[in-house]
Structure formats: C-alpha cells, structure tokens
Design a protein around this nucleic acid. Structure first.
Lengths: 257, 257
DNA sequence: GTCTATAATTGGATAGAC
DNA sequence: GTCTATCCAATTATAGAC
C-alpha cells in the first residue's frame, strides 16, 4: 500500500520475480523460502503471508506466465486457420505461432517471461505436480490443437509422425531457449558462434530446422538399417533383425503431470 | 562379500540401481538418502558407508552410466571417419552413432541405462554440478567431435548452423527418450499412437526428423519474415525491423557445469 | 559388514509484537 | 503490512554397538 518501496515494486511482486528466477535456475527443491526472502529483501514470513506456501507460490508463477502465453499462441493459430478455411494452412506460420510468442516475450518488458521456458523444461525433467491441474489441461489442449493444425498443414506426413515430430520440436525448442539461463553449453560448444540471447536469430534457426524436419520424408519402417548405411559392428553386437524388445522393469505409477 | 544377498545383488549395487531410478524420476534434491535406503532395503547408514555422501553417489551414477556410452559413441564415430578418409562421411551414420547407443543400451541388459537420458536431461534443467569435472570435459569433447564430423558431412551448412542444429537434435532426443519415465505426455497427446518404449521406432523417427532438419536449407538471414508468411499482428505488435535487443538483467555467475 | 542412535543443521510454516 | 522469534519436522552425516 504505502509508497515506501514503490520504486522496486511491492513485496509481493518482488517475491514473484526473484523466486521465478531462482526456481528457474536451480529447481524447486533446491531453493528455500529463506533464499527467496533474503534475496528479495523481505522478511522470512512474507512468502507464506502472500502465497500461503512455497508450493502455492510455485503454482502462481506458472499461472502468471503460462496462461497469457498460451492465449497468445491460440490467438495466432485462430487467425491462421481463419485465413485458410479452404486451403491448407502454412506449416511455417503454425510453427511461428508456437515459437515466436515465447521468444518475443523474453525480450524486455516484464522481467519474468525469460524464465518460463526453463521452468517448463523442469516440468518435464522431474515427476512433480509443478502446475495446477487446470493449467495442465489447458496445456494439453493447446498442444493438441497445434498437432492437429500441423497435421492438416502437412498432409503427406501421417498423424502419428506429426506427433513424434511435434515432440522433437518441443524438445529442441526448450533446450535452446533454456541454455542462456543455465549451462550456456551451446555458446561454449560453438566457440561463441551461437548467441543464445539473440531472439530473432534463435527464431530463424528454429524455423529453418523444424520446418525441414517436420515436412521431411517418413522414417523407413522398422526394417532396420535400410538404405545407405553400412553395417556397424560394436562391442555389444547388433544383429540385423533385433526384435522390438520391451524395456523398463518397474514404474509403478508415473505421475501424469 | 558373504553370499547372503547375492540374488538381489549386494548392497552397494542395489543402492546404485535404486537411486539411479529415484533421482531420474524426481531429481536429486527431491530424494533423500532415507528414500533410497528404505526402498533398497538397506540401513540408513549404507549410502554414506559405500559412497561417502549423497553427492558422491550421484556423481558415481554418472560415472557408471555415461562414460561407457560416450566411449561407444566415439568408437562408432572413429569407424565412420576411418571409412571415409577421402569422401565426406554419411550424416545419417553420424546421427545413428549419436543416438543408437543410448536407445540400444536402454533395452534389457543392465537396469540402470534407461535412466541416463533423464539424468542428463536434469543436468540441463538445473544449475548444479551433477557430474564431475572430468566427465564434463570428456562430454564436451565428444559433442565437439560430433559437431565437427557433421560439419564435414554436410558442407553446404555453415559451422554455426550445424552447432544450432546439433543442439536442437540434442533437445528433441532427450525429451523423447525422457518421456517414458516421466510425464508420458507424448503417448497422451498422440492418443496412444506413439509408443515411447519402442526403441527401434524411436530411432527411426528421430533419424528421419533430424536428418531432414540438419541437412535442410539455411535460415533466412535476420531480415525477418521473408518468404511466404503473411504479417501476423498480435496484441504486442511486432514492427518489421525489430532490433536484436538485449535481454536478461541479472545472471551473476551461471555455473558452467 | 550391518545396524541403531544421535548429532548438527536446515527446512517450511506460524504466532505475535510493532 | 512488516518483521522477529520460534516451533517442529526432516535432512545429512557420524559414532559406536553388534
């Protein structure tokens, strides 16, 4: 209320901002409420006062960041589909609708957005109810809409293949977006050639790669090692007709997140 | 020593196995040594007795799993390059050398391998020294060798672009491999069409997508929105010549991992 | 080698003064 | 609204009996 700390923002939004960064960098379990409150310059009780619990604070971060992004994506997709009622939509525009809002919201403006990809990345990395049930449902709905749009845009690729490829897009997308706040491994591996802070460049790199990949020819059916490759023999041999083979012995009830 | 628990494996390897699974599923910080020892059916002190600390145990898991895998990859790559001294190597075989050892080691045999991709995934997700310095160095060396091999195999793609694309390959690869032990989101989104436990199928899907993507045409240079796409107008407008724009305010010293 | 008991620290959350 | 002091549960790690 008072105007005391109006310059820096009130305590609540300071906590939101600082904790988003700390959680994104180190993960939920690695950060204590003491880490947050001390770095935010507020007292220890503030997190519980404003957000009831550390868990609730985490949920609220996703609410704040993810929902608007998903709505922007859907708005773009709506527009694309509205303009292509008769013809099939342009796959590049669909990919851009998926990717660009994330990158764009990462430059300037509000200070939290850059951390969303990394927080999402962690959602896949650990089995933990990071986001509320409702947000998770909305999330899947958005993904399904994009998959269906891509399937219509690229009719020569089967629906199943589109699903695989959508997921590979997602993985590449998240890893690249995530690298700047974390390992910075791409800059290192490329000897500084790849600047993971250059939003427009990231976008064009992704679009080029994903568009080629997602529209490319279908995989050779599971007769293995078809066309060109010579047989590779390695220590653990790999006789030609390896059967599908089940894997993973125990996985009682994987939290569906 | 004694033959008491020889059937189940001795205490040390039981701990290694159980903890690899628990860490992979929930992350390092979410798992306590009590979780491990109780699930492994050993006493609470066993982790510290065999591994000195929880941290050391974690490092040892990577040692055990990652080193042999990297060696197998390098052996395959050596062979490919040896056979192509004059001609340029086959990009598909290089991608297979990168991908197949992981998938192959995930079926049957030893019980730990399936968890490696997920553990690696977490390495990217949180800023934490998951793996020892020496393993990290070897890791980067392997990546660099693959990047250089791909650059030679695909001469019409610039070295910088190869780096971006290698990293996107890595991201898609990890997310897909990771999904079976975790969110199982791909199976859900695809309505059961995609079976993330079917190793050979995963391989062929990846090879097809990555090969098209990595050999595809270069991205349009940062004159944005070049060829086909119509201008998209969204709430937060996007005037044509958006400058690069710096981002991220504070990131004191990101652990280079 | 295996186990129990316990040390020493740190975690999330709350009560109550101001 | 803000802050301090504090409770209580859970953590890693160790000491020492068997």
């Amino acid at each position: 209320m008072s105007r005391k700390r109006n310059l820096e923002g009130d305590a609540k939004s300071r906590i939101l901002e600082i904790s988003a960064r700390l959680f994104a960098e180190h993960g939920f379990n690695a950060i204590s409420v003491r880490d947050i409150t001390s770095e935010a310059g507020v007292n220890i009780g503030a997190v519980n006062y404003y957000f009831q619990s550390k868990e609730q604070l985490f949920h609220e971060i996703f609410e704040t960041l993810l929902r608007p992004l998903q709505r922007e994506r859907i708005a773009l997709l709506d527009q694309i589909e509205a303009e292509a009622v008769d013809a099939s939509p342009d796959p590049e525009r669909i990919l851009r609708a998926l990717i660009e809002p994330t990158i764009r919201s990462s430059v300037g403006k509000d200070a939290l957005s850059p951390y969303l990809p990394r927080l999402m990345f962690q959602t896949y990395a650990v089995a933990r109810q990071s986001i509320g049930d409702d947000v998770a449902v909305e999330n899947d709905a958005v993904a399904t809409r994009f998959i269906k749009a891509l399937a219509r845009a690229i009719p020569h690729v089967s629906y199943e293949d589109i699903c695989w490829r959508y997921y590979m897009v997602l993985g590449g997308f998240l890893l690249v977006c995530t690298d700047a706040q974390g390992a910075q491994r791409l800059e290192r591996l490329s000897d500084g050639r790849c600047d993971t802070n250059d939003g427009p460049r990231i976008i064009e790199q992704m679009i080029a790669f994903f568009l080629s990949g997602i529209t490319g020819p279908a995989p050779s059916k599971p007769r293995r090692r078809a066309a060109k490759a010579l047989p590779v023999n390695v220590p653990s041999a790999d006789p030609a007709p390896t059967p599908p083979a089940r894997r993973r012995r125990s996985n009682p009830d994987p939290s569906p997140q």
